[in-house]
Design a protein around this nucleic acid. Sequence first.
DNA 1: GCCAACGTTGGC
DNA 2: GCCAACGTTGGC
Length: 135
Amino acid sequence: MNYWLMKSEPDVFSYDDLVERGKAEWDGVRNHAAQLNMKAMRKGDLSIFYHSNIGVEAVGVMEIVEEAAPDSTDDTGKWIAVHVAPKEKLPKPVTLKTMKADPALSGMVMLRQSRLSVSPLSEAEFRHILALAKA
DNA sequence: GCCAACGTTGGC
DNA sequence: GCCAACGTTGGC
């Protein structure tokens, strides 16, 4: 099982929107590195849902429920998307500031490449973020 | 609103 | 194939 972190601007699509919908296509990703990460996702993988721009914090956990398939918002046929479903809302959001300040998370890909919208997490990083959310 | 990081485009 | 110009993302 692998772990991921995916970003969305909450005024466009928030974790609560995902909860309301129950299941959603993670579409609109137009970056090759992020696409490669999505192609590597397997059913059952878990991902942190992160709110960029507004909030700037990890807010929930979601599960990959369908692996890479053509992005329905793309008419060139070049881009893929996965489907996700909400798993757990974090009891307390974990802010970017907190993650940056935590030595246990210093290797996080997202911290090193802030513009990458879909990035991998190690199992230790994933568990650590959950622990921070419950502290 | 500004700016840094970085991806893409296009001229050569 | 290089690199300058430009656009976008995302934090502050």
